[in-house]
């Protein structure tokens, strides 16, 4: 753990892009991965999608 905080940070950011932008502004190496919960996290839509597999 100590090593982690003493070494240069290289970040993979998933989801909210703003977090990646903030890190970039501070000079941290960051790769952003576009991700969001399937079907906007809506259980009803997920069950419809299950029906249509």
């Amino acid at each position: 753990m100590e090593n982690l905080f003493n070494s240069e940070l290289k970040v993979i950011n998933m989801g909210l892009e703003e977090f990646a932008e903030t890190l970039k502004e501070r000079g941290t190496q960051v790769i952003h991965v576009r991700w969001q919960p399937p079907a906007m996290g809506d259980d009803n839509l997920l069950s419809l999608l299950d029906k249509l597999k």
């Binding site: 969001q36 079907a39 419809l48 999608l49």
Partner: peptide, 8 residues
């Protein structure tokens, strides 16, 4: 349509 909704 399924992918549009699933991926938003």
């Amino acid at each position: 349509v399924r992918k549009v909704v699933e991926k938003n």
